[in-house]
Amino acid sequence: MIVLNYLHGFNSAALDTDGKVSELRTRFDVNLINYDSFASHDAIVEMIDAQRVAAPSTAFIGTSLGGYFAALMGQRLGLPAIMVNPSCDPHWALAHYRGVTLENYKLPDQPPQALTAATIESYAGTALSADPADYPIPPLLVLDSGDELLDAEATRQAYAGLGEALVFRGGSHRFEHMGDALDGIEAYINRQAPSAS
């Protein structure tokens, strides 16, 4: 069975109780990766690398900031990646939260945190490439058109060169169509599987 390394978004958590995780587990083995989204870019890459399942039939999937890191890890490791409502340029997107103290609604016992200027600057120049030639396997873009935080249509247009995207009408930034996306995700991963010789 294919293992999906699942990455949550900014100020969130990957939990067994998450509806998206439950839907993914109807088709895939899902490895939940939790990382400190207030840490620097490079520190997060190290956290993800330490927790990922390194098996031949592996892919990355993530939402929002996790979608960014899913594509980045797929690019670095030559693995399929699914980026759901992704933050393709965190240096720009995270700047909106500079100095704001935030509670994590998924982890209410965790103390509130604030995003520092240094953390935001650690993302300078790290926007995801829209050129498929920059990826051993171009990532799959999955979007809810009703994303209230990131402009889904602008993302679709900017990253159209990566290949066909899965775009669902309505929804929100939390992504509400995982069940509907399963066939497309599975087809994408199966296309990347090495052919039998």
Score class of each variant (00 low, 15 high):
His41Gly: 00
His41Ala: 02
His91Val: 06
Arg156Pro: 04
Asn104Lys: 09
Thr101Val: 12
Pro136Thr: 05
Glu46Asp: 12
Asp16Trp: 12
Asp147Lys: 10
Phe175Val: 03
Pro194Cys: 06
Asp29Gly: 07
Asn31Thr: 07
Ile185Tyr: 03
Lys20Ser: 01
Ser122Cys: 08
Asp36Asn: 14
Ala59Leu: 11
Val45Asn: 01
Ile33Tyr: 05
Asp49Arg: 14
Glu46Met: 05
Ser40Ile: 01
Asp109Tyr: 06
Gly66Lys: 00
Glu153Trp: 13
Asp147Gln: 11
Val100Gln: 15
Thr58Tyr: 10
Ala55His: 07
Ala181Pro: 05
Met73His: 03
Leu128Thr: 03
Val100Tyr: 12
Asp42Met: 04
Ala50Arg: 10
Met47Leu: 06
Gly74Trp: 04
Pro80Gln: 10
Thr63Glu: 04
Ala165Asn: 11
Ala187His: 15
Ser37Ala: 09
Leu7Asp: 00
Ala43Asp: 12
Glu121Ala: 15
Ala124Cys: 12
Gln75Arg: 15
Ser122Leu: 09
Ala158Tyr: 04
Ile61Phe: 00
Phe38Asn: 05
Pro138Val: 11
Leu65Val: 02
Asp183Thr: 14
Cys88Trp: 11
Ala165Glu: 11
Leu115Thr: 05
Leu143Arg: 10
Pro108Cys: 01
Met178Ser: 01
Arg191Asn: 10
Asp89Ile: 07
Ala39His: 05
Tyr159Thr: 01
His177Gly: 01
Ser172Val: 02
Asn104Thr: 07
Leu150Tyr: 13
Val53Glu: 11
Val100Trp: 12
Ala124Asp: 12
Arg169Ile: 09
Met83Ala: 15
Tyr68Pro: 01
Leu24Thr: 02
His173Tyr: 11
Gln157Cys: 13
Tyr97Pro: 05
Ala54His: 09
Ile189Val: 15
Asp49Ala: 15
Gly179Asp: 00
Leu15Ser: 08
Glu103Arg: 15
Asp180Thr: 03
Val30Asn: 06
Ala133Gln: 14
Ala71Gly: 09
Ala130Lys: 03
Leu162Gln: 08
Leu149Gln: 15
Glu164Ile: 09
Asp89Ala: 14
Phe38Gln: 07
Ala81His: 05
Leu182Thr: 00
Phe60Cys: 02
Asp29Gln: 14
Ala81Pro: 05
Pro108Trp: 00
Val167His: 05
Leu128Gln: 06
Ser145Thr: 15
Asp151Val: 12
Tyr105Val: 11
Gly161Leu: 06
Cys88Ser: 10
Ala154Glu: 15
Ala70Thr: 00
Gln157Lys: 15
Gln157Val: 14
Tyr123His: 11
His96Asn: 13
Asn190Ser: 13
Glu176Arg: 02
Phe10Cys: 04
Leu115Gln: 08
Asp18Ile: 00
Ser145Val: 07
Leu15Thr: 10
Val167Pro: 03
Arg27Lys: 08
Pro108Ser: 00
